[in-house]
Design a protein around this nucleic acid. Structure first.
Lengths: 234, 234
DNA sequence: ACCGCCACTTGACGAAGATCAATGAGGGTG
DNA sequence: CACCCTCATTGATCTTCGTCAAGTGGCGGT
């Protein structure tokens, strides 16, 4: 796990992150002056829940899981983040402790942004404040959705909702790619890998066919109906 | 449901809200110039999930539940808020739609703060920005915790964790009062009322005795151990 | 005082999902 | 190629929780 200052190439990538979109390049460079890029091999634990939080992260490449640990080695995955997403932005404004642990599930490139200089510069850029709020709010919305789904959907419906979230199409059929392996997906959806397999089995009956990480949804509308009966309005 | 401008008495109450603590009275009056106080009888639906969000709320008195609806009339409660708490602050920064519905579960007094004037004034008070971030972050932390508990705790452990959250004491025994009725509590904890009854039954074996809305915990440490085996670190 | 309503509890049963165990399909390594 | 290891699937069984039904006690209204 090595750290280097931000390269020009990294800056270009960061400009695609929603949080920083719309910022002038020089403003961005100034904002992230003391940020570093960190290359982490697969399966690196970045921090554990409860560790003091003095920085936040932006994923440039690879994937990171946010998890909670239970007694023993059991992990439950709260969320999985890919390129362009930020995490633990909120932690630095709160009590200053991470609410979850974080671990790379692939080799990853991360931008590490230290709190103090970032906050100081935030005070001089109100647009960025709004952008930051929007980012945190999106994250919050995702969690609310997840709580709702855990409370009132079956495994099949949760899987279906997840698949629907992977496509932009509204009606008709669609092919999606699972962004990570099924073990991780099962944990993210709050079930065991075996239950995920069976959930794919039940969805097969309503026209969802998968092989490896490719999944074909024959009829998006039908799947959406299935997921929302006794379910959640979008 | 009637609306009135903010009274002096209401302003005094609002100063106790964490979000606004530390603001000078005149700054607060200016900030909330276009806010209104709304008196809502029990069981008023303030908005449904998906409604456009152009304001946020502060609870002065009473309680409000945030819920998601499933097909039919089934509701699942995401959170219950009491005096001094704010809700849907985040919604106004995001896509502008409420992620949940909201309903009063008691007669309630609410402060309604319209988005536009609030955001405009926010830009001139950076301390308030930080306070707002902290408030949203706390909310987010609560949701993360809830997701973790739903994914890896039993009904008994979830109830235990909830009870532990009601007391300030660290060790020894403690008496707490349930802040709302058991039907609502069950939904908040993601279970049926019958399961909540049985969960109280299992906790009785480790020294948790309840009658009506009073619950006596004989040994906080024992309960904490029970909740965290296979559970979540605090 | 009586009745009815509502919140809560308890019991019996069934369904969903977890757990345990066995098997097969790649993928890398000696 | 043989070997091993991990991931995924499938079947059998068990546990937990939801569902349905009945029963209790409190509280307000007539």
């Amino acid at each position: 796990m090595e750290s280097t200052p931000l390269s020009q190439a990294a800056l270009v990538q960061i400009r695609r992150v929603p949080l920083f979109a719309g910022l002038a390049p020089e403003a961005l460079g100034w904002l992230l002056e003391s940020a570093q890029v960190q290359s982490c091999p697969r399966d690196t634990v970045l921090f554990e829940a409860g560790d003091p939080a003095s920085q936040f992260y932006v994923v440039l490449d690879g994937r990171v899981e946010l998890f909670m640990r239970s007694a023993g080695t059991r992990r439950s995955v709260i969320d999985v983040l890919g390129p362009g997403e930020t995490f633990d932005v909120a932690a630095i404004f709160d009590v200053g402790r991470y609410p979850t642990g974080a671990r790379t599930v692939e080799d990853a490139e991360l931008v590490v942004v230290p709190r103090d200089s970032f906050v100081a510069r935030l005070s001089e850029n109100f647009d960025l404040v709004l952008s930051l709020m929007a980012s945190i709010s999106r994250h919050l919305r995702g969690l609310v959705r997840q709580v709702g789904e855990l409370k009132l959907k079956t495994t099949g419906q949760r899987l279906g909702s997840f698949l629907l979230g992977l496509t932009d199409a509204e009606t008709g059929h669609s092919t999606v790619r699972l962004p990570y392996d099924k073990r991780l997906l099962a944990s993210r959806l709050g079930m065991q890998p075996e239950s995920l397999s069976r959930a794919f089995g039940t969805l097969r009956e309503i026209g969802v066919h998968g092989e490896n990480d490719r999944v074909v949804i024959d009829d998006l509308t039908a799947l959406r109906t299935y997921c929302e009966e006794n379910g959640i309005p979008r």
